[in-house]
Design a protein around this nucleic acid. Structure first.
Length: 260
DNA sequence: TATAATGTTAGACT
DNA sequence: AAGTCTAACATTAT
């Protein structure tokens, strides 16, 4: 569910609440999450984001790393007592309230002292992407540019919705081999990536089905989607018809007439 | 009932 | 060897 803008939204909201708070209690409601040790009694020092990971830095040099995967959400509940929402999988109680991980599909992960995975080649597309760097990384890769943009080892944070929207904004066919884009095309991709992601952050994310922010509110970026989930509808730029294809097992939406 | 859903990754290919 | 592709994970909604 959440991509960079959604995780950034949660991160900004948590920053207003958690720093300085003591962890009073942790309840694991889904055994898939494993055990979580060493956090109770410690204090939150900072909240950060890396790609789609949310990092909670804890006193004593610990870091808890949360990944929401497909259906994870975070919800802030004022009181610390049940009932918790459906599909609550993890509860972390603080003096100010309770942080709840809601996750129907149970793919989310929460780890302490993570074996911090290697950073992406492009650490974070917010605040500037180098077109030359993208082109350099793409030079030896022939796979479709859409799956290139979504590869977290290469660029941190872009997922299915924003990959589709970025390529529409850049006017590039998602099936094009990455190595075949011209310097001018990479400039467009770089520029549009930043623009699309920044607008989504400003809109507190995209709510097409179940995304909600920390306080249960929908985002508003769905109002700006040009292609995602719009198959059969009219392209607002050229009047053509938006199509859906499958790439790497995921849906891709694009306008064949204005994305070349 | 079959399909698709905002993600990642192990293992099999090339 | 590095790059690429597929299936699998678990559950709900259409």
């Amino acid at each position: 569910m959440p991509e960079l803008p959604e995780v950034e939204t949660l991160c900004r909201q948590l920053k207003t609440i958690l720093p300085g708070e003591e962890i009073l209690r942790i309840e694991i409601l889904d055994a898939r999450l494993g055990t979580i040790e060493g956090l109770v009694g410690r204090r939150v020092e900072a909240v950060k984001r890396r790609g789609k990971f949310l990092q909670i830095c804890i006193s004593g040099g610990l870091t808890a790393e949360l990944h929401l995967r497909m259906s994870g959400r975070l919800f802030w509940q004022k009181g610390g007592v049940p009932p918790f929402p459906s599909y609550s999988r993890l509860v972390i109680a603080f003096p100010a309230g309770t942080l709840i991980l809601i996750d129907p599909r149970r793919f989310a992960t929460f780890t302490v002292q993570p074996v911090s995975s290697a950073p992406a080649l492009v650490e974070d597309p917010l605040g500037g992407l180098s077109a030359r760097r993208l082109r350099e990384i793409a030079r030896t890769r022939r796979r479709p540019v859409k799956s290139f943009l979504m590869d977290q080892r290469l660029i941190a944070g872009i997922g299915n919705i924003y990959a589709c929207e970025i390529l529409f904004a850049a006017g590039i066919d998602p099936r094009r081999p990455s190595s075949g884009l011209s310097p001018a095309e990479w400039r467009k991709v770089a520029k549009m990536s930043v623009a699309i992601l920044e607008r989504a952050v400003a809109c507190r994310g995209t709510t097409v089905s179940d995304w909600r922010d920390l306080f249960g509110c929908s985002g508003t970026n769905q109002d700006h989607l040009a292609v995602y989930a719009r198959q059969g509808e009219i392209c607002r730029r050229c009047g053509g018809k938006i199509e859906r294809i499958t790439q790497g097992g995921r849906g891709t939406w694009f306008c064949p007439s204005c994305q070349q």
